[in-house]
Design a protein around this nucleic acid. Structure first.
Ligand SMILES: [Mn+2]
Ligand SMILES: [Mn+2]
Ligand SMILES: [Zn+2]
Ligand SMILES: [Zn+2]
Lengths: 132, 132
DNA sequence: ATCAGTATTGCTAAGCGTTTGCAATTAGAT
DNA sequence: ATCTAATTGCAAACGCTTAGCAATACTGAT
């Protein structure tokens, strides 16, 4: 049996999803707020936060918990890695197969159960090492 | 030529390092504050934060920027991975060799330079799946 | 041992990203 | 068209961390 969710498709929610799907830039909540605001000037930042939260909880979108930085959001829900620029902070996809073997190693070494992993790459993006 | 640092060894700084070295629990700033407070009741939380910041900047200790959670600190500065319990939040070491090969893969796929990586494992710790 | 100069402290207030409480609104089922 | 619970906008609160500042106390030089 499946828990009833009773979700409604408000215009706010609809446009938030739509705007997120337009970009590959992994925007933060407030960046997305500015994008959405162009089409819905009266939307509140809380509404953006709330929807990003519920949508990611449902698996409709992906929430990236970047270490020591703002959360970012991603319309691509397939499991993939990211790389962050140490200079300008932008986040890009890294197209490589997830290395799930390490989870088994970690499970044995740590005695933890249900081990999962996340990798965060960082470096200098092409734009930043061009301009110094 | 080496930049002059002019660091002083205050009793606060000394005891912060000492208390951090006593544990393997990767305490947060406020947890360490409570530990230090037993020996220096008049120390302020700011002082703990400031020292953890400067000590980690110097490489004396390690700052763990946990995704979506409080920063944690580690007296073991050698590069190693960590695993976090999804249930109680505790952080343990994972003793395995760093897999630096993935950085080269990420570099090629992403076009970023000076690529580094961090892995964060998560799961259920032995204490939690016992009582879970 | 004393001194001077500045790194560091404790206190407090501010910062930042995010969450929450609540009355008003509205989607969507009947 | 009516009803009701989900959702909204606004504002205020939140949790963690940083910053401003006058008072203190290391430390290298005298
Ligand atoms: Mn992505
Ligand atoms: Mn460790
Ligand atoms: Zn960049
Ligand atoms: Zn646990």
């Amino acid at each position: 049996m499946h828990t009833q969710l009773n979700r409604r498709m408000t215009k706010q929610r609809h446009i938030i999803i739509e705007e997120l799907r337009k970009v590959t830039s992994h925007p933060t909540a407030d960046q997305l707020y500015e994008m959405v605001r162009k089409r819905l000037p009266r939307i509140s930042l809380s509404t953006v936060y709330r929807n990003l939260e519920t949508l990611s909880a449902e698996g409709m979108i992906l929430r990236l918990d970047v270490a020591g930085a703002q959360k970012r959001f991603d319309a691509t829900v397939e499991n993939h890695y990211h790389i962050r620029c140490n200079h300008c902070g932008r986040v890009d996809d890294v197209h490589m197969e997830p290395i799930n073997e390490i989870e088994e190693i970690a499970r044995r070494r740590s005695k933890y159960q249900s081990v999962s992993h996340s990798i965060e790459f960082s470096g200098i993006c092409p734009d930043c090492f061009g301009r110094g």
